[in-house]
Design a protein around this nucleic acid. Structure first.
Lengths: 233, 233
DNA sequence: ACCATAGTATGGTCTGACCATATGAGGAAG
DNA sequence: CTTCCTCATATGGTCAGACCATACTATGGT
């Protein structure tokens, strides 16, 4: 059993306060000094707790004065997920194929469990922007939007956040992949096919189209199976 | 554009050092005071940076002296994911059905993309333990192990970590669900069916079995969430 | 009514001190 | 020589106080 540290208590108490007061996105927390006095701890402990919450995408901090200053509750899980992926890729405790596989899983699931068809509008306008893109970077940016739209089809915010984090993580890789290919017509055809099949409510067909698309987008990783390794229990 | 804070620079530099030196799990970082002097920043900034890295499951800190003291690189993405889910559920920016759906997605994917069949041994021994469980808590504990085994079938560490975090998040819910049901025979039959179908390499059948199982385990959420749309697969 | 300025509350950082913990060295006892 | 105890020491954890940068807010002059 590990003795709990002060800042962990602070996190727990802030969490409790959020639950008790029913705080949601947009609400404000007391200032650091005030919080420290209320909880009878040092300001540094409060700061470390807030830092953790900020890392997890639950709050954001803004200096100065006024309604937007201080710690404000937000909902930005994707930034935490993106940091998570980046760091664990850095320490080799996660490999790119595993990330790509996860992306495939989410998109296939989303097109087969459409619960928010209005996301198709996002996909549609992204497609138009991609057609008009003047650079590979711009093309990839709208490509990200398109695939965010795909994830949004599920109506599941956790999947959407994960998708955003995934794309953020592999962004550089995506750009270089498109640049290497040098052409976008194949990818565009894939996108249109996915869009049409989703519109036709052909989930299985769309899932196949998604798989084909990712195979085109990441030729070097196809069939490469995720890196194996024992899981430290 | 936002001015970068000191501790963010520290994170970046530590990250850079990890990349340059090829540090992996088990390696140690310099002490807080030493790091502060090297980077010419205050110790508090170093501490906030380390706190972020700890939150993301990349390092762990241990006081005292010796080889295990100080900041050691680890790989524990599941704790970060679990914190993430818990907090965002708390602020109502995420709902339980979304989490359950994600779990279904991962398990269905895993049984259809088996890349590490040795995980079946984990499933098997978990089943034996479940049969012998003396309490609902114990039953659920081994149930978690079984479903971790399912996730491990994919050979994808990201999915395994996510599954562990999901189960941790819904643990209390799982226990109360089993307790309310008062019987475990239906659930055990589901588990055996999944195990058999995976063993027979019947991915689609196993996927159906997983869906049936979750419907049994979370009756109150079935049909409630984003899950809609006919999915014969 | 408008604008410039000072005031002030907030987060961000640094310094130095002290506490808690766990190892490792060195001496005392057997 | 071995064993055990004690103490020095290195490390993270916490606190207090100070100062800076920022951005709103009130004040007062025009």
């Amino acid at each position: 059993m590990r003795k709990s540290r002060t800042f962990e208590d602070v996190i727990a108490q802030i969490e409790q306060r959020i639950a008790d007061d029913g705080l949601t996105v947009g609400d404000r927390l007391p200032g650091e000094r005030q919080l420290a006095e209320q909880l009878q701890v040092g300001r540094s402990s409060v700061r470390e707790a807030l830092r953790v919450l900020e890392t997890l995408g639950v709050i954001t901090s803004q200096a100065g004065r006024g309604p937007d200053a201080g710690a404000v509750l937000i909902s930005r899980p994707e930034s935490a997920l993106a940091d998570l992926l980046r760091l664990h890729l850095g320490t080799a405790s996660l490999a790119l194929p595993e990330v790509i596989d996860t992306r495939l899983m989410i998109e296939q699931w989303a097109v087969q469990h459409v619960d928010a068809p209005e996301a198709m509008e996002v996909m549609r306008s992204a497609l138009d922007s991609m057609e008009a893109a003047a650079s590979f970077e711009e093309f990839v940016d709208h490509d990200v939007t398109f695939h965010m739209g795909v994830a949004l089809l599920s109506g599941n915010r956790l999947l959407a956040a994960t998708m955003r984090a995934l794309r953020q993580t592999i962004h550089a890789y995506s750009v270089s992949a498109v640049r290497t290919a040098g052409r976008t017509d194949v990818l565009m055809a894939d996108h249109w096919r996915i869009y049409e099949l989703v519109g036709a409510r052909d989930g299985q067909g769309a899932a196949r189209a998604v798989a084909d698309h990712l195979a085109h987008a990441y030729p070097s990783l196809t069939g490469e199976g995720p890196a194996r390794s024992g899981d430290p229990a």
